[in-house]
Nucleic acid binder design. Structure first.
Length: 666
DNA sequence: GCGGATCAC
DNA sequence: TATGGTGATCCGC
């Protein structure tokens, strides 16, 4: 870093605003950084950022210590383990698919310019003084970008024009683009309103044209239908395609051929921050602890990564270094939670807070009823005047979705926190009732598979494209699952947590009321099923395994004492032989049947639980067994349908396979 | 099951 | 004056 912190205090204020976005190459980063710092300095928001930053620094120090304490013997051991793992991952590489990622250029801003052409050529941002959603390219030249508060943007660019968001418009144009995508891949994955993944393997083969031409064609069609430009990336997997679509933005494209050497060359100099799932914090940790800046260095430092991170985290990093990513086309995804939250001017007025809570409950209930959802876990989110975020949850015995029920329980959660000075409140409901199992990402992609899994007619009219700015997406979701996993493990791996002065400071900021919290936690929750956490792990492991093509990927990964680790891993892993057959019973399920595979895992897990229980309590009566199964059902809605279907799973599978084939032929 | 945290759009 | 909203996920408790 140039200059001391005393001379240039703004340089130590780590924001996302200076990381290179398309159209911001020529920006004077130091100036932007300085303005952002000057506008923020001293604010509550800024103080909270400082607190978080100090916390990360602390974690980094601990990791450095671990790093420094590794002996030569340690390192040679970890190198062996890492090398083997990298070989296994390499063996899973799939170069048979051609993926295309489309990304609309400055989407909201472009749409607004279409409906008001006088904006053309002028710096403009969609959003408010508080927050900017999208900035056009003229504005980006000034360092204005999404996620930046408007008042700072105006400082950077005084003539900046602000346009309020209008999701009806964006939804309309998004639908137009999707009609184009559908022609090239009926199972395309909508990443959000403005991006999508298309598997163009078949189109290229059938028409015998290069992927480059398909990309040109799609972009031309999108322009023709909407008047909007987009960029495209073509690559052997989704992770790389996404990186590629950013390279020649705006209104450009980049093709990475399905060739291992080309991929490795491409990845070698690529900054890790370009990879989806590696954000500000992960970048900082990898840089400051390991000196890792490029994807290639993930492999160079593999032994250190192996030593300091968990298996799944290290796996993710290696796969980045190898340029691996998902190549399957998941057919269905289910919503797992529904929420709303609002920011308002700070208040500690209990009556006012209760009124706002009632409004949230009302809105949430409406949303849930629209989608036919009922849930049994309710979470209250508070952001205090000092920007500290608190979540407080209850899990009920029955499923709720009426505003009265929601408000009743939310009020209890809130009461336990009072008095408190709040700037945001939110409500979330999760743990849905399995029979009303929510919606698909895009109703137009409906297949026989999700017809069955969602109960067909029982599925409510959830047209997700009407849900405004948050399309419900399979890919976003799965990408997130990757980073959720590794970033969280960065936290979890700090063995010195809770023992340092910094943590004491951290905690002193919070106003934690033990008595209230305890009361709330026990009030409606008299059936804490300890089996559920194990259950979640099963699902997590299997779905994460899907990240890496999974061709006979060996999951025994011996970090320290092999036996200990294996015993905890073994039972949570479902191996799909040749990525097709269940290793336990031979049932055949191709990788695209994501949900079916999860259910299948559930089945084996439930089976295992029952076996364990009968071996632990040999005298247990049938009634006890039934009860144990029920507790699983309550904990996870999937297991019920799993149990219903186990009798006839094979006929069902073959039906699904046939249906899917014929659908693809259409 | 809960709470904190990261990440994406 | 002023730093969003929705959703997903994981780990350590």
């Amino acid at each position: 870093m140039e200059g001391s912190e005393e001379d240039h205090p703004w340089q130590s204020y780590n924001t996302v605003y200076t990381t290179a976005k398309a159209g911001m190459e020529g920006v004077d980063k130091d100036k932007v950084q300085r303005v952002v710092y000057e506008m923020s300095k001293g604010s509550k928001y800024f103080q909270n950022e400082e607190r978080k930053e100090a916390f990360i620094k602390h974690k980094i120090d601990n990791m450095r210590l671990q790093f420094a304490n590794l002996t030569q013997a340690d390192l040679s051991h970890y190198q062996k383990v890492a090398d083997r793992r990298i070989l296994e991952l390499e063996a899973s590489r799939d170069l048979s698919r051609i993926w295309l990622h489309v990304d609309m250029d400055a989407f909201y801003a472009a749409v607004e310019t279409l409906s008001n052409p006088t904006l053309k050529g002028k710096p403009m941002a969609v959003g408010s003084m508080s927050m900017i959603s999208t900035a056009n390219y003229e504005a980006r030249k000034f360092g204005v970008r999404s996620a930046m508060p408007g008042f700072i943007a105006r400082k950077l660019c005084p003539e900046l024009i602000f346009v309020p968001v209008d999701f009806n418009k964006y939804n309309h144009y998004s639908d137009l683009t999707r009609k184009v995508f559908q022609r090239y891949d009926p199972n395309f994955i909508a990443g959000s309103l403005d991006e999508a993944y298309l598997d163009i393997t078949e189109v290229c083969r059938e028409r015998n044209v290069k992927s480059e031409e398909i990309a040109q064609e799609i972009r031309a069609s999108v322009y023709e239908e909407t008047g909007l430009t987009c960029s495209a990336g073509v690559a052997p997997n989704r992770l790389l395609a996404k990186v590629c679509s950013d390279i020649n933005k705006p209104n450009g494209q980049y093709v990475l051929p399905n060739d291992r050497l080309a991929v490795m060359t491409f990845i070698s100099s690529l900054p890790i921050r370009k990879i989806g799932g590696i954000g500000k914090v992960t970048e900082q940790i990898l840089k400051e602890v390991f000196g890792i800046n490029t994807c290639e260095q993930m492999l160079d430092k593999s032994s250190y990564l192996c030593a300091l991170f968990s298996q799944s985290t290290a796996d993710f990093f290696y796969s980045v270094g190898l340029g691996l990513g998902k190549t399957d086309s998941p057919q269905v995804r289910f919503r797992k939670s529904i929420s709303n939250e609002r920011t308002f001017s700070v208040t500690e007025d209990e009556v006012l807070l209760h009124k706002k809570l009632a409004e949230l409950a009302e809105m949430l209930s409406t949303d849930m009823q629209k989608e036919g959802l009922q849930g049994r876990t309710l979470t209250l989110k508070l952001k205090t005047a000092s920007f500290e975020v608190r979540n407080r949850a209850v899990t009920l015995q029955n499923y709720i979705n009426s505003s009265e029920d929601i408000l009743k329980h939310a009020s209890k959660l809130l009461k336990a926190e009072l008095p408190v000075s709040v700037r945001l409140m939110g409500l979330r409901v999760s743990q849905f009732n399995g029979e009303k199992f929510g919606a698909t990402p895009d109703p137009r992609q409906k297949t026989i598979t999700n017809f069955i899994t969602s109960g067909g007619a029982n599925r409510k009219n959830s047209s997700f494209s009407d849900v405004a700015d948050h399309d419900f997406v399979s890919d976003t979701e799965t990408d997130v699952s990757i980073d959720g996993r590794h970033t969280d493990q960065l936290d979890g791996r700090d063995p010195f947590d809770g023992n340092h002065s910094l943590d004491v400071n951290y905690q002193s900021c919070t106003l934690w009321k033990n008595d209230g919290a305890e009361k709330v936690q026990t009030s409606d929750n008299d059936d804490p099923s300890s089996t559920h956490s194990g259950f979640t792990e099963v699902l997590g492991s299997t779905s994460f395994q899907g990240q890496f093509e999974g061709k006979n990927v060996n999951n025994e990964f011996n970090l320290l004492e092999d036996d200990k680790l294996n015993s905890s891993c073994q039972e949570s892993i479902m191996l799909w032989l040749d990525d097709y057959k269940c290793s336990l019973c031979g049932t055949e399920l191709p990788p695209s049947f994501v949900e079916e595979r999860l259910e299948h895992s559930d089945f084996h897990f439930a089976e295992k639980l029952q076996k364990e229980e009968s071996s632990i309590h040999p005298a247990s009566t049938p009634i006890q067994r039934i009860r144990s199964t029920e507790s699983i059902d309550k904990a996870n809605p999937r297991s019920k349908s799993c149990r219903i279907r186990r009798a006839g799973i094979r006929p069902l599978i073959s039906f699904l396979l046939e249906s899917n084939q014929s659908l693809k032929l259409l």
